[in-house]
């Protein structure tokens, strides 16, 4: 429970953070809300030698809507998503999912950019961004680039970000279609054992903790598009997936849960 020693740098701007990352290479980690990184450091599962604190970049805390696109600054806190009137209007799935992350102290510190960059397959918001077909804007030494959420999650705690890139913005299309998020866990503050995010009446469906990354349930989306019932579409929710086994659930039970909660989420999102 005692982290290894590390150096600490405070970024004055996103550009400054990127230059510090370029300087320190893969020994450096960005520190935003810290509610994933610090526990991992305390367990010594992560031992960065330099922390670059981006937590004071308040210019990256915003939620805007323009021409049907919602843009969210990377340092926007979960609690800000949760309580945003704009988001409740134009991307209610994100607001609703944000309200279920961890506990109040996590939600007041944790950031949207941080949880995406962390790429934990058991986290809620990455799956929601995936279901919404979002876009992640990464800033590096050469400027900004856009990465589709479907291309962003590369592996277990791995993203498409280069060592010297940071997320500055997340964009999702304003969405008014039926949506729902089902989170199954033991305690309110825990990660999902299985989660299911549904956007646009089943046009976007993604699963939490059903593989090494948040996964898009393409077979379910296709079934819904072909007019399948919620029950029939949910039956293929776990198809082709290799979910993890842990103390809460082995892989078979997880597949079962994925089917149960996909059906519930689809129904709640308006799929008959």
């Amino acid at each position: 429970m005692i982290p290894a020693s590390f150096d600490y740098e405070v970024a004055e701007s996103a550009e400054h953070a990127v230059s510090l990352l370029a300087e320190h290479g893969d020994e450096a980690k960005l520190l935003a809300g810290g509610h994933s990184l610090i526990p991992m450091m305390r367990f010594r599962l992560a031992t960065p030698t330099v922390l670059v604190d981006v937590g004071r970049l308040d210019d990256l805390r915003y939620i805007n809507s323009d021409n049907g696109t919602v843009s969210i600054g990377a340092l926007t806190r979960h609690s800000e998503l949760e309580h945003s009137a704009l988001l409740a209007e134009s991307a209610p799935l994100l607001a609703s999912v944000a309200a279920l992350v961890g506990d109040p102290s996590v939600r007041h510190r944790g950031t949207l950019g941080g949880t995406l960059a962390h790429a934990d397959p058991a986290s809620d918001l990455p799956a929601a961004v995936l279901a919404l077909g979002g876009t992640i804007v990464a800033r590096g030494p050469g400027g900004d680039r856009e990465i589709a959420a479907t291309d962003f999650f590369a592996g277990y705690f791995e993203s498409a970000l280069a060592d010297d890139e940071m997320i500055v913005e997340v964009r999702v299309a304003a969405s008014a279609g039926g949506w729902n998020y089902q989170k199954f866990n033991r305690r309110a503050q825990d990660w999902a054992i299985v989660g299911v995010a549904v956007a646009e009446e089943g046009a976007g469906v993604s699963l939490v903790n059903m593989g090494s990354t948040p996964v898009r349930a393409s077979a379910v989306e296709a079934a819904v598009a072909a007019g399948a019932s919620a029950a029939d579409a949910a039956a293929v929710a776990a198809e082709g997936l290799q979910p993890p086994s842990d103390l809460n659930a082995d892989a078979d039970y997880r597949r079962h849960l994925a089917r149960v909660f996909t059906e519930r989420a689809l129904k709640a999102a308006g799929v008959a």
Binding site: F43, D103, R186, R187, A188, Q189, D190, L247
Partner: peptide
């Protein structure tokens, strides 16, 4: 909720409060 889980080699696998499920006020 709670269970101090040991595997057959005598290794305990619930060594932190993420795995050892002490319920909170919410539960």
């Amino acid at each position: 909720y709670e269970d101090a889980v040991y595997n057959e080699d005598g290794q305990i696998v619930t060594v932190n409060l993420g795995d050892y499920l002490v319920p909170s006020a919410a539960e």
